[in-house]
Computed example of a mutant assay.
Amino acid sequence: MDRDDEQLLRGRVYGQDHDRPGPRPGRRYVELVGGPLDGLLLDITDWEQHEIGTGAALPTELGRFGTGGRAMYAPRPGDPRHFDWGGDAP
C-alpha cells in the first residue's frame, strides 16, 4: 500500500461501501492504529463489552496473507478509542 492508498482510507469506516464511507451520527467507533487498516474507523455500536475487550480479527486483502487473510486488532490499554494492530493471520 502506498501513501495515496493510506490517504484514501483515512476517515473511512471499515466495512462501509464507497458510497457512504464516513462515520454516521449516533454510532460508536474506535480507530484502527497500525497495520493494513491503519486510520480506518471500526463501528462497535452493537458490540458487547466482552467483545470490545477481545478485539477483532478483520478480513482484509491488504494484509500479509492477501485474500482470505485477517488483520488482528486489540483494544489499547487505558484508551478505549483505539485498537492497535497485532499482526496478520491467514
Results as ranks from 00 to 15, higher is better:
1 M>Y: 12
1 M>R: 14
3 R>S: 14
3 R>Q: 09
3 R>L: 14
4 D>A: 15
4 D>T: 12
4 D>E: 15
5 D>H: 12
5 D>S: 13
5 D>P: 02
6 E>V: 11
8 L>D: 08
8 L>I: 14
10 R>Y: 12
11 G>I: 08
11 G>R: 14
12 R>Q: 15
12 R>L: 04
14 Y>W: 15
18 H>F: 09
19 D>F: 11
19 D>R: 15
20 R>L: 06
20 R>T: 09
22 G>F: 06
24 R>W: 06
24 R>T: 14
24 R>N: 04
24 R>C: 08
25 P>T: 10
27 R>H: 11
28 R>D: 10
28 R>G: 02
30 V>W: 04
31 E>A: 13
33 V>N: 00
36 P>A: 07
37 L>I: 01
37 L>R: 13
38 D>H: 15
38 D>G: 07
43 D>I: 05
45 T>P: 07
46 D>A: 06
47 W>T: 04
49 Q>H: 00
50 H>M: 01
52 I>Q: 05
55 G>N: 03
56 A>P: 02
56 A>R: 05
57 A>W: 02
57 A>Y: 09
58 L>E: 04
58 L>A: 04
59 P>N: 07
59 P>F: 01
60 T>D: 01
61 E>S: 07
61 E>Y: 06
62 L>Y: 08
64 R>L: 13
65 F>Y: 15
67 T>A: 10
69 G>I: 07
69 G>K: 10
70 R>Y: 03
70 R>C: 12
70 R>W: 07
71 A>Q: 14
72 M>K: 10
72 M>D: 00
72 M>L: 06
74 A>L: 13
74 A>S: 12
74 A>M: 09
76 R>K: 05
76 R>Y: 04
76 R>N: 02
76 R>E: 04
77 P>A: 13
78 G>D: 02
78 G>Q: 00
79 D>S: 03
81 R>Y: 02
81 R>G: 10
82 H>C: 11
82 H>N: 12
83 F>D: 06
85 W>E: 05
87 G>F: 05
87 G>D: 03
88 D>R: 05
89 A>L: 11
89 A>C: 07
